[in-house]
Design a protein around this nucleic acid. Structure first.
Lengths: 178, 178
DNA sequence: GAAAAAAAACCGTCCAGGTAGTATAGTGAA
DNA sequence: TTCACTATACTACCTGGACGGTTTTTTTTC
């Protein structure tokens, strides 16, 4: 195992526990076991539980930022690059979203301040989205609708049928180009 | 204090703790103190922590259902009653939303199955919204956008300016009537 | 390039503090 | 008499974090 890898394995283990067993089962020992590391080893990398959760959030914020940035860079659009990328990445990536959910829930439970990197992300994106060549109100609505899908996945509240989801996705995309 | 009142006071106290101090501080003792009840008294009404959280969710689901139903009943619209009511209630009621946030987070942390009443609510609403006389895809997008506002409030992720929020709200409403 | 030293990456146990839930004895009101 | 509590004590358990090692890797020295 490479150097940086171990820390990230631990973060994945922590996310997995939150996703599958809930926040109350995110204990240092459980995380250590899930990651195949001793408790002491875990505490070497993350000297406290808060540090562990901070690690989760920082890591996923970085990932998410990269993903969106890559999508923007790839885009050949003139208008609506950012909102298009935001919608694409969020609609079509169930897996990283799971880690996102785990990170958010953990941070909210442990210490809301840990969410700051996410807040920064959203502030950046909202700025870009509003200056992206399309009506900012419409762009904001597209973002909000995308976030709405997210909310229902986070709590497993209401799953739209794949078909309806696709229709929603298409309609939102059509608004970007009209 | 009347009979039913005490239970509800306890539920409010629990929500308050979750909102202000986070899930990890929702202990039986803290809830009892916040509600001005002894621990024994609390356990008389809710024999376990899970029962307490179940109480929170059930109570808020009932409340939310009533609120939406009342708004629908009041409405003189022919088309889009449900989506209009859903958007109105959710946009304009910061306070019950706080209880909703607390209940959802607590249930998600303690036992996801406790969210079932909320799932039922959303299933009902989605059915009504899709049969409410306006394009179901558009109606769904309005619901999702409303939920998006919700998500950002839940995590304090990104607060739209009041102005932009108002513009979004107006545009969503205009879509209902067009 | 081998040995020695130092730093990094761990291991595993212990403990103080906190928590859910039980138990129990009693109180006042309807 | 029952309901809706109060007040307190107690248990059994779990958890974060401290701590003192040990092993592995890297760097330095000869």
């Amino acid at each position: 195992m490479g150097r940086a890898t171990r820390k990230i394995e631990i973060l994945h283990a922590a996310s997995k526990i939150v996703s599958e067993r809930g926040i109350f089962n995110l204990t240092l020992e459980a995380t250590a076991i899930e990651a195949g590391v001793s408790k002491g080893g875990l505490l070497y990398h993350f000297p406290s539980k808060e540090a562990l959760v901070k690690g989760m959030v920082d890591h996923l914020a970085e990932n998410y930022r990269d993903k969106i940035a890559a999508s923007v860079a790839e885009s050949s659009k003139e208008k609506g690059k950012w909102i298009k990328s935001y919608a694409d990445v969020t609609f079509n990536n169930p897996y990283p979203n799971k880690e996102m959910h785990a990170g958010l829930l953990a941070a909210k439970a442990v210490n809301s301040d840990l969410l700051d990197p996410i807040r920064n992300l959203y502030n950046e994106w909202q700025t870009e989205i509003e200056q992206d060549g399309i009506d900012p109100v419409k762009a904001t609505i597209i973002r909000l609708a995308t976030d709405g899908i997210w909310l229902s996945e986070l709590f497993d509240i209401h799953h739209l049928s794949e078909e309806r989801k696709e229709e929603v996705y298409s309609k939102l995309k059509s608004w970007i180009d009209e």
